Structures are given as structure tokens and as C-alpha cells.
Amino acid sequence: MDKNQLGVQYMQEGKWEEAAKIFNEVIEENPQDAIAYINFGNVLSAVGDDEKALKFYEKAIQLDENAAAAYYSAGNIYFSNEKFETAKDMFEHAMKKGLHSSDNYFMLGLTLVQLDQGKFALPYLQRSVELNEEDAEACFQYGLCLAQLELIDEAIVQLEKCLKLDAEHSDAYYNLGVSYAFKEDAKKALAMFEKALEIQPDHLLAGYAKKLIEKGQ
């Protein structure tokens, strides 16, 4: 196992100091190793030092302009700091440089949703689900995007898929309820809102929606 792999193993075990030490050694031994800079950046990001992490990703890109993982990791930081335009650019760069992972498609789709570009987000979220059918959150976000574009039947399919993968996803139940209410199926909508509240009793939107349905009956 080389040092980069060992450092990644330490990261997976949550041993951040050991991981940082190893990646630092790699950089000292080989200052041209872009992967070590990406890995060190990921350690810094994991411990909350976003500013320093971005500098390591920038260094990785300077060393290797095709370092797709550096663009992706930088995109995640910009997304979490609500710099969505910059995040979008990073995820798109990662894709152009060959990163066609479900995570990259998912994050690009999510970023476009935040930028109120749901129509553009849709194919990326769809691709994310196609590449990883076991990702409950990807199914949920894809379903949500479909619902926002009033593609209700398709949204229901994805939200139900999400619940097969994660039976405790209260927001999926809530949005299924909204979808059934949109289709004027009050009985199914009420059942979904009740299920959301059973899982999360303080789900304000589900509580409000339940009262509205009950008033209308």
C-alpha cells in the first residue's frame, strides 16, 4: 500500500492527524504529486478548514489541470458555503475533465436547483440515480425536482423508490403527500402526511398540510 492509500485509509477511520501527517510526507517527498494535495485538501475540509482546503485544491489543479477530483472537492466547499455559481463551474469542470460519477452528477443537479434552474438540473439528477440506484437521497432530490416541474406521476415513482431505500425519510413522505394532494387524492395525501409525522412529529409542513386536508374533508 502506498502512502496516499494509507492516508485515505486513515481518513476513512477518522484519524485526521495521522492522515494529514502521511499526505504531508508525500508532498515533501514528491512536491509534484497532485493527488497528495487533493487528499490533504480533503482532510482540511473534513476538519472544517475550508479556506486552506481550497488552496490545496488550487495547487493540485496547477500541477495537473485534469485533476477532476480537485474540481469536485472544491465544488463541494463552494456549495456548502452557498456560492452556487462557483460550485456549478467546479462540478462542470470536473465533468469536462472526466469525472462522470453519480456524486458529481448529483451535486451539479443540486446546485442547479439552488440556482432555480430545475429544468437544467433534471437530466443530471436523473443520471445520478441511473448510476447509483441505491442512493435514497438522489432518488428524493430527483423526485423533488420532477414535482417542482409538475411532472407529478414521475415524481411519485422516484419518491416511492426513495422510501424503499430509506423507510424513515419523512420529507419523502411529505412530498408524496403533496403530490397526491396535487392529484386531488386526499385520502392518500393524508396517509402520507400522517406517516411523515409519525417519523418526525415536529415536521411543521406535514402538520400544516394534514390540518388543511382534514379541514377540506
Results as ranks from 00 to 15, higher is better:
Met1Cys: 04
Met1Gly: 15
Met1Ser: 14
Met1Thr: 09
Lys3Phe: 02
Lys3Thr: 02
Lys3Val: 00
Gln5Asn: 12
Leu6Gln: 12
Val8Asp: 11
Val8Trp: 06
Val8Ser: 09
Gln9Val: 00
Gln12Glu: 15
Gly14Glu: 09
Lys15Asn: 13
Trp16His: 10
Glu17Ile: 01
Glu18Asn: 02
Glu18Ser: 06
Ile22Lys: 02
Ile22Thr: 07
Phe23Tyr: 15
Phe23Asn: 10
Asn24His: 12
Ile35Leu: 11
Phe40Ala: 01
Gly41Gln: 07
Val43Asn: 04
Ser45Lys: 15
Ser45Asp: 15
Ala46Gly: 06
Val47Ser: 04
Asp49Cys: 00
Asp50Trp: 10
Glu51Trp: 00
Leu54Met: 10
Phe56Met: 13
Phe56Trp: 01
Ala60Glu: 02
Ile61Arg: 05
Gln62Lys: 10
Glu65Asn: 13
Glu65Trp: 01
Ala67Met: 09
Ala68Glu: 13
Tyr71Asn: 09
Tyr72Ser: 15
Ser73Leu: 13
Ala74Ile: 11
Gly75Tyr: 07
Gly75Leu: 06
Gly75Ser: 08
Gly75Thr: 11
Ile77Ala: 10
Phe79Gly: 03
Asn81Gly: 01
Glu82Thr: 11
Thr86Asp: 12
Ala87Met: 06
Lys88Asn: 08
Asp89Gly: 13
Asp89Phe: 01
Met90His: 05
Phe91Ser: 04
Phe91Met: 04
Phe91Ala: 03
Lys96Ser: 11
Lys97Leu: 05
Leu99Val: 01
Ser101Asp: 12
Ser102Arg: 08
Asn104Gly: 03
Met107Ile: 04
Gly109Pro: 10
Gly109Arg: 12
Leu110Lys: 14
Thr111Glu: 11
Thr111Cys: 11
Leu112Cys: 09
Leu112Arg: 13
Val113Gly: 11
Asp116Cys: 05
Phe120Leu: 15
Gln126Pro: 00
Arg127His: 10
Ser128Met: 04
Asn132Lys: 13
Glu133Val: 03
Asp135Arg: 04
Asp135Phe: 06
Glu137Tyr: 08
Ala138Arg: 12
Cys139Glu: 13
Tyr142Ile: 01
Gly143Phe: 09
Leu144Thr: 14
Leu146Glu: 14
Gln148Ile: 02
Gln148Ala: 05
Leu149Thr: 08
Leu149Tyr: 06
Leu149Asn: 13
Leu151Phe: 07
Asp153Ser: 08
Asp153Arg: 03
Glu154Ser: 07
Glu154His: 06
Glu154Gly: 00
Val157Ala: 04
Gln158Gly: 08
Leu159Val: 05
Leu159Phe: 10
Glu160Thr: 14
Lys161Gly: 04
Cys162Asp: 12
Lys164Cys: 14
Asp171Met: 11
Ala172Thr: 08
Asn175Ala: 07
Leu176Ile: 08
Leu176Ser: 09
Gly177Glu: 07
Gly177Cys: 05
Gly177Tyr: 06
Gly177Ser: 08
Ser179Cys: 14
Ser179Leu: 02
Glu184Arg: 13
Ala189Tyr: 02
Ala191Phe: 02
Phe193Arg: 05
Glu194Asp: 15
Glu194Ser: 08
Lys195Met: 14
Ala196Lys: 07
Glu198Asp: 15
Pro201Glu: 10
Pro201Asn: 12
Asp202Ile: 00
Asp202Pro: 00
Leu204Trp: 03
Leu204Phe: 07
Tyr208Lys: 13
Ala209Leu: 00
Lys210Val: 00
Lys211Pro: 00
Leu212Lys: 14
Glu214Gln: 12
Gly216Arg: 14
Gly216Trp: 09
